[in-house]
Design a protein around this nucleic acid. Structure first.
Lengths: 149, 149
DNA sequence: TTTTTAAAGCGAAATGATTTTTATTTATCC
DNA sequence: GGATAAATAAAAATCATTTCGCTTTAAAAA
């Protein structure tokens, strides 16, 4: 896993610093989305010093490189998660426990066709995200031990 | 149109204040998404005093009531637009001129089915938005007179 | 119509997540 | 191992968005 992340960073021409690797490792441990501050709290113990801006910067670089993904949260804060699936796909986000799961369904082709034919425009990007409650949280009477916000 | 907006506000149990109506009118004049500050600049001439917080508050109330919609912009600022189509649907956003167009394509049923069957969760909401260049802007060599940001 | 009253509006100040800056450290390539 | 371009820390800045404490106003009631 570590090696895998090393390679990913090398491919992006990002230096494999311990902090960068720790951030990636941390995210890839569980399919849960995290805020920069979450990550910072969890990792600053491991390092004598770790600045919050460093976390922000790294998360953004990794997201820009496509190694991690962002969540569009209604509260408009930033959240990131690691997803090993390298195919084009979208995500289901549990609003209670923050679990992220892959979706196969993608309307990309249909959307692309409609934009091309009816609107006459070109697609630069598309956003699809499903917010809901995962199996576990939907089952419980009090969903989400972890507050969604 | 004015009457139509009056009715919409009444249905939402929001007072039909001149400022609120002006905001709605302004947005519904063109299918373009606007920032709160845009709206404020355009309307504050019409009123001796018009606070930016008032614009923020009204836009948010109207969006909460479903009378207007929000744009998910990469720059993470807030944008709103008026859309007369009351059916469930999604939007194509021109990143250059800010025009918004309706899309018919919606993967809602497929997504709902997949979440139910494969993930075992429940859908609370879904986001679909297509970002691109509209016919006019895709044609031009220098798309977007209006800066996308 | 007037009265009543709950909602809306105001400007100023606060908020708080995110970014920038500058000096210092560190990974990588030879 | 040494050069160098990249990464980091810490503090400070930014700036869109909200809150606060009142004042004003729309609209339901009289």
């Amino acid at each position: 896993m570590h090696d895998h992340h090393m390679r990913a960073l090398k491919d992006l021409k990002l230096k494999a610093t311990p902090k960068r690797l720790a951030i990636l490792d941390h995210l890839s441990r569980e399919p849960i989305y995290r805020s920069p501050e979450d990550v910072w709290h969890c990792l600053k113990g491991e390092f004598g010093r770790l600045g919050l801006p460093t976390v922000y910067r790294n998360l953004e670089e990794l997201a820009a490189g496509g190694v991690i993904s962002k969540v569009l949260h209604p509260n408009r804060q930033l959240y990131y998660f690691y997803c090993r699936n390298r195919e084009h796909h979208h995500h289901f986000i549990c609003m209670a426990c923050r679990r992220v799961e892959d979706l196969q369904t993608c309307a990309a082709e249909a959307l692309e066709r409609e934009v091309g034919e009816k609107i006459g425009g070109m697609v630069l990007s598309h956003i699809v995200q499903v917010n809901g409650l995962c199996r576990d949280c939907a089952g419980e009477s009090r969903p989400g031990e972890r507050s969604p916000e």
